[in-house]
Amino acid sequence: MGFKLLSKLLVYLTASIMAIASPLAFSVDSSGEYPTVSEIPVGEVRLYQIADGVWSHIATQSFDGAVYPSNGLIVRDGDELLLIDTAWGAKNTAALLAEIEKQIGLPVTRAVSTHFHDDRVGGVDVLRAAGVATYASPSTRRLAEVEGNEIPTHSLEGLSSSGDAVRFGPVELFYPGAAHSTDNLIVYVPSASVLYGGCAIYELSRTSAGNVADADLAEWPTSIERIQQHYPEAQFVIPGHGLPGGLDLLKHTTNVVKAHTNRSVVE
């Protein structure tokens, strides 16, 4: 069995187990497998329904001669939608809004960016022009300005110390501490036991640490421990890039980060 097929099978099995364990909360999309990078042309966006009122959005972007996937989250909030992270750029984010209108038909009224990198804030200006209120932590807003990236308009308070959590509509926002970046936030959907790890969490097929220019490698494993301790009931975990899975993604990420750190020390 090929690795790609095995990865998709694991996603399907995880979703099936969740649907059985929580039949009222989960209505997993039966329309197909989780979209992969090879299936999404740059400039297009796919939506994948995880649970009743919960979707991931998947886009792709060219970077350094390669094409990478990027995940975000959409959560229903009454007759409105909360968006977590842009679709990595203005063109993708405009396509995301169009796809949401086509498939869901509810307005996106608020959006949260989970850290300051372009795959999370690139497209904020498109959201703002569409009347979406954009939010991020003060740290993310400051770092985005320093980096020359787009800056969300509103500040999220109460997320300055490791372990801080605040309720934001249908989700809980959690600051686990520094990891992929010093400002990275985690998003949890309690009604569906869905954990969105953003770039602080890796997919299972990833074996290298990737972009760690703004990471705190020493603190990252401790931050992941905080996530595990705060959300032990999480059933569906979405990484910032690639295929979702279960809580095993947290341990896998820790292993990859520690291996990278150990290699760096040896070198």
Rank of each mutant, 00 (worst) to 15 (best):
K4I: 14
L5P: 05
L5Y: 08
L5N: 13
L10I: 06
L13P: 07
L13M: 07
A15V: 10
S16Y: 13
S16K: 06
M18L: 05
A19H: 03
A19R: 06
A21C: 15
A21W: 12
S22G: 10
L24M: 14
A25P: 11
A25S: 14
F26G: 08
V28P: 15
D29P: 12
D29C: 08
S30K: 15
G32W: 09
P35S: 14
V37K: 12
S38C: 14
S38I: 09
E39A: 10
P41V: 13
P41F: 08
P41W: 07
P41E: 12
V42R: 11
E44Q: 11
V45E: 03
R46I: 15
L47K: 01
L47Q: 03
Y48N: 08
Q49N: 08
D52Q: 06
G53C: 04
G53A: 09
V54P: 02
V54Y: 00
T60Q: 15
D64G: 09
V67A: 08
S70F: 02
G72L: 01
I74D: 03
V75I: 14
E80Y: 07
L81W: 00
L83A: 13
I84L: 13
A87F: 00
A90N: 09
A90L: 10
K91Y: 14
N92K: 13
T93R: 00
T93C: 03
E101M: 15
E101Y: 08
E101P: 15
K102Y: 08
K102T: 11
K102M: 15
L106R: 10
T109G: 13
R110I: 08
R110E: 08
S113T: 11
T114Y: 00
H115W: 00
F116L: 03
H117W: 00
D118I: 15
D118T: 11
G123L: 03
D125R: 09
D125T: 07
V126E: 06
R128W: 06
R128V: 07
G131N: 14
V132D: 02
A133G: 08
T134E: 03
Y135F: 06
A136P: 03
P138A: 14
T140Q: 02
R141G: 05
R141C: 10
R142S: 14
L143M: 11
V146D: 11
T153Y: 06
T153D: 06
T153G: 12
L156T: 05
E157M: 15
D164I: 10
V166F: 10
R167F: 07
F174V: 04
Y175A: 04
G177P: 01
A178W: 10
A178P: 13
H180G: 00
S181H: 00
T182I: 06
L185N: 03
Y188A: 05
P190Q: 06
A192P: 10
S193G: 09
Y196S: 01
G198K: 00
C199A: 00
E203D: 04
T207H: 15
S208N: 15
S208Q: 10
G210Y: 03
D214Y: 13
A215F: 04
D216C: 05
L217G: 06
P221M: 12
T222R: 10
S223T: 06
I224S: 01
I224T: 04
E225L: 15
Q229T: 05
Q229E: 13
H230D: 12
H230A: 13
P232T: 06
V237P: 00
L243N: 11
L243K: 09
G245I: 01
G246M: 07
G246W: 04
L247T: 06
L247H: 08
K251R: 11
K251F: 05
K251T: 10
K251Y: 15
H252W: 07
V257M: 12
H260A: 08
N262F: 05
R263Q: 15
S264R: 12
V265Y: 15
V266L: 11
V266K: 13
V266F: 15
E267M: 08
